[in-house]
Amino acid sequence: MLPSDATGPASPAAADDPGVDAPLATAAESDAARRARAALAGVAPEPGAAKPDPILTAAGIRRAFGGIVAVDVERVEVQRGSITALIGPNGAGKTTFFNLLTGFDKPDTGTWSFDGKDMAGVAPHRMAARGMVRTFQLTKSLTKLPVIENMKLGATGQKGEKWWNGLIPGTWKQQEAEIEARADQLLQRFKLDHMRDEYAGALSGGQRKLLEMARALMTDPTLVMLDEPMAGVNPALKQSLNAHVKGLRDEGMTVLFVEHDMDMVHDISDWVIVMAEGRVIAEGTPDDISSNPAVIDAYLGMHQGRSLLEDL
């Protein structure tokens, strides 16, 4: 955990927080949630709004594929310690925007900074060491590695990942044991401990989503970027995923996620950014967004005049 964490307990002990897996309906709002919402209460609900303590700031990001402008974002800020949702219709450029921020794709123009440091041109493999980790829309669990190996892969700064150290087990055995203990803790928290030694290929689709999220946490991130964490997950598991995402914020992490599931968005996010045709068309709290005519027009045109949640 990086010392810059503004809120919440940052020790692995927090992994055992009993509130993390509590059913949503009865979950009391945590301190972290209250803090995040209070900080965002004064922010104007408009595209590009400045946040009191942004962890991620992007400006002038533009990416075109041939003649099609996939992303053209003037300004986006993500508040530290909050859960921010990125929504928008298919083809709005959400995943492309994600890829640009995480270095998996390069923008034609634009700058962005994370934790005050310029991130333009930083290779994707350097993001994790800086505290920024992402998951993928199509789950990338490594099916031919056992679950525990998947987890251990996530730890950064491993001595044994240098080949000359790899030859001498004495140089990495102790660190490996520490990593394994941390991995086991996370597996327990995500209720995957019974699958520990199975190949990840033996997991169900939902369990793979959980594994990918747990593996991402092995990098000790300050910002977790989830690309459609709910895609293809059954309703029961959605509840627990929801709780896990909230748990991240309660531990002081910042979460930015792409999602289509409006239930989830409304339930867990502190702030919502709406994209359409590559642009940010609206920002605000979930309640602001449900009543924003621009959003209803662009994203939910056919539901005009009804609650955002009514049909879902």
Partner: peptide
Amino acid sequence: EDEDAVRSLGK
């Protein structure tokens, strides 16, 4: 198995 997954984990 998957380069991008490994890249996202900082390797």
